[in-house]
Amino acid sequence: MTWIGAIRRAGRIVEPAPSAPSDRMAPPAGVTGSLQLRHVDCGSCNGCEIEIAGAFSAVYDAERFGARLVASPRHADGILATGVVTRNMHDPLLNTLAAVPQPRVVIAVGDCAVDGGVFRDGYGVVGSVADVVPVDVEVPGCPPTPAQIVAALRSVTGR
């Protein structure tokens, strides 16, 4: 039983939970303590994706605070948008948001998503996420650390 041994050897690797962030937004109606998110890469360099993967990894474990990534926007309470909105991803972003049931939250992760970042004036760029859809929570950083992402998610889940 090598996998049981591996679990025993690894032990508990999760970071201790920091105290809940004080500035929290009102969670969308019907969502109490649990937030299902659909991730949309609007044109990211994949730096933010790596940090999001870190935020949902065994070490930062965003799921213990009620946030969870899902595969379909139909199952989601909101979207987690990364990167500048490129021309190719403009319509898919709108389609994805339209597929998320209301009420819903939009979380923009990373400088590009917040204000365009270093790609702001690129020829293939429409703008930041906020230029296209209303954004509820912004996570600055290029890329933001997993701890920052987890803190932003906790400000929505309230846990």
Partner: peptide, 10 residues
Amino acid sequence: DVPLWACGAD
């Protein structure tokens, strides 16, 4: 009434 979900396609 919402549009069909086509994985982001139109």
